[in-house]
Nucleic acid binder design. Structure first.
Length: 500
RNA sequence: GGUGACGUGACCGAGUGGCUAGGUAGAGGUCUGCAAAACCUCCUACAGCGGUUCGAAUCCGCUCGUCACCUCCA
């Protein structure tokens, strides 16, 4: 399975050919959301990027196992002992079970991601469903001497880990000494940790803490970063192929994950390729829950955010996300979305054109179609060049538009199709359809309202009756019957009903 | 304070040494009952100042500006 797909690996800071550990299988893990509130459009970038990635890997022939987790526990508000779990906090405020919060937002998230055209992951594990795996991981890390227990909590021992020749900080290019000196208020969190760079693997639960599980160290809950290491190993093995998430997860989340996997019996970097997509900004500033400058996915779909002049459909949002390379920041604005909307529709109009590209009867392809065939094949190949270059969907889309221009040109004058061989045309149209719908996941969104169209049809029906054009009347009746709809002539007017 | 990234035409956004990115908007044209779509043509930019080079948006330096991470965050 040789092909030139290369991906940028944060670990090595360069593009690398993608060669799975166990070809033709490819294991992909994406860090999913913490479901304590509604997701914003920035949270959608990862799923969309990884959806295209996994779709493309499948297109290339790999058997992909795609894992995207749901974090439904953890992530303390602060490092201090009294820090509260976000999930628990939301639950406490609303007087419900934490799992209700998790369930509500997890469901919403999945609905949103699905309408954005993302295929469901093969496995969607939850942190709370993998407490035993996490505990086991901690025990391994302790056994290897890279963690210690204090007061019912367990911390990862970063200095010990680095003393053993490992490299905490290698993913995010951090130096432990600098972290130690640079941490801003490292006095606030000075509690049980031997070093301020140590991080919790297990936290003892305070009596009022809602979410807790029994462990060898007493009642508690798993640490910030543990679930991904545990679940990735469980479902993708000790070394998966690709592990990804937002740039903001690189440190500390992914750095800690690597340390945990290295420190456990896995002794691996957890994944060969670490991919990080960039942030979505609003007016140049990162969209974030803490800043409050975010546009939720619902607001985008409904047009209810003040920065938006109108609602934007899921597919327009998807196109918007894909028209930039995943490692570039992307600034969301009404103008940019307008441009995306038109670009998306143009692409879809092209899709509807493909079947109509037929050489008119009576015309035969020219004897020598070599040049035109080569040009068409080059246009198709260009799309793959873009995708293969670190999944550059912006480049791929640009190439698709070039191909589309060619199709539109053919359609404007079908006789020009004689210059190209039927085989080459077939290849190109198939490739266009496949790339747009199967790989990029951009599908046509019906915009016309069926009932409005039906009302229009009934107007024509009425006019035909008035004109006593019964041929037309019968034609309309028959056509609607074909759709399972019967027209009812009532004294009061014309109505319709579904055929029973 | 430490680390890193970026600054492309009206807007969005590709592009790491020489070859048209692309989308949107705008102008002209073809087509057209009107309109739309489509096609053709045009508008052709690389923050500033130096440097390297036959040649730089692309490499180097400086200046200005913006942002991210270092704390939960996609």
């Amino acid at each position: 399975m040789q092909h030139p797909l290369s991906l940028y690996n944060t670990l090595t800071r360069q593009k690398e050919p993608f060669t799975p550990v166990h070809a033709p299988f490819a294991g992909v893990y994406l860090c999913g959301p913490t479901v304590y509130s509604e997701a914003h459009i920035g949270n959608a970038r990862g799923p969309v990027v990884f959806d295209v990635l996994t779709r493309y890997l499948r297109h290339l022939g790999y058997t992909v196992r795609y894992v995207r987790n749901i974090t439904d526990v953890g992530h303390l508000e602060s490092d201090a002992d009294e820090g509260e779990d976000k999930m628990a906090k939301a639950a406490r405020v609303r007087h419900v079970e934490p799992m209700q919060i998790a369930e509500q937002y997890a469901n919403l998230y999945q609905r949103h991601i699905e309408v954005l055209g993302c295929l469901p992951p093969d496995i969607q594990p939850r942190a709370t469903g993998h407490i035993t795996e996490q505990i086991q991981l901690i025990e391994e890390i302790i056994a290897n001497g890279f963690a210690y227990e204090v007061n019912g909590s367990v911390y990862f021992d970063v200095p010990a880990y680095n003393a053993a020749g490992r490299a905490y900080g290698k993913l995010s290019n951090r130096v432990v000494e600098e972290l130690l000196s640079g941490s801003r208020d490292n006095l606030a969190g000075q509690d049980e940790k031997r070093s301020s760079v140590d991080f919790a693997l297990w936290k003892k639960a305070a009596p009022e803490h809602l979410m807790h599980w029994p462990s060898p160290w007493g009642e508690g809950f798993p640490g910030w970063h543990l679930e991904c290491s545990a679940m990735s190993r469980k479902y993708l093995g000790q070394l998966s192929d690709i592990h990804g998430g937002g740039l903001d997860l690189m440190f500390p989340h992914h750095e800690c994950e690597i340390a945990q996997s290295q420190g456990s019996h896995s002794h691996s970097d957890e994944a060969r390729i670490w991919m990080h997509h960039n942030m979505i900004t609003v007016n140049g500033a990162k969209m974030s829950k803490s800043l409050g400058n975010f546009i939720t996915i619902s607001e985008l779909f409904e047009g209810t955010n003040k920065t938006l002049s109108q609602a934007y459909s899921p597919m327009v949002a998807r196109f918007f996300l894909l028209q930039a390379h995943y490692r570039s920041p992307i600034d969301i604005s009404d103008d940019a979305l307008q441009a995306s909307r038109k670009g998306y529709r143009k692409l879809m109009n092209g899709l509807r054109l493909l079947d109509k590209l037929q050489l008119p009867e009576g015309l035969a392809p020219e004897a020598d179609t070599t040049a035109a065939d080569a040009e068409l094949r080059k246009l198709v190949a260009d799309v793959f060049v873009g995708l293969n270059d670190d999944l550059n969907t912006a480049k791929a889309l640009a190439s698709l538009f070039n191909l589309l221009r060619k199709f539109n040109g053919f359609f404007a004058n079908l006789a020009t199709l004689a210059a190209v061989s039927p085989a080459a045309l077939q290849e190109a149209t198939t490739a266009y359809r496949t790339l747009v719908t199967d790989v990029l996941g951009l599908v046509d969104e019906p915009r016309a309202n069926a009932e409005d169209l039906l009302a229009l049809t009934l107007t024509f029906y009425q006019e035909a009756k008035t004109a006593k054009d019964y041929g037309k009347v019968d034609q309309i009746r028959a056509a609607l019957k074909g759709q399972g709809i019967v027209i009812k002539d009532l004294k009061t007017g014309i109505d319709w009903a579904y055929e029973e």
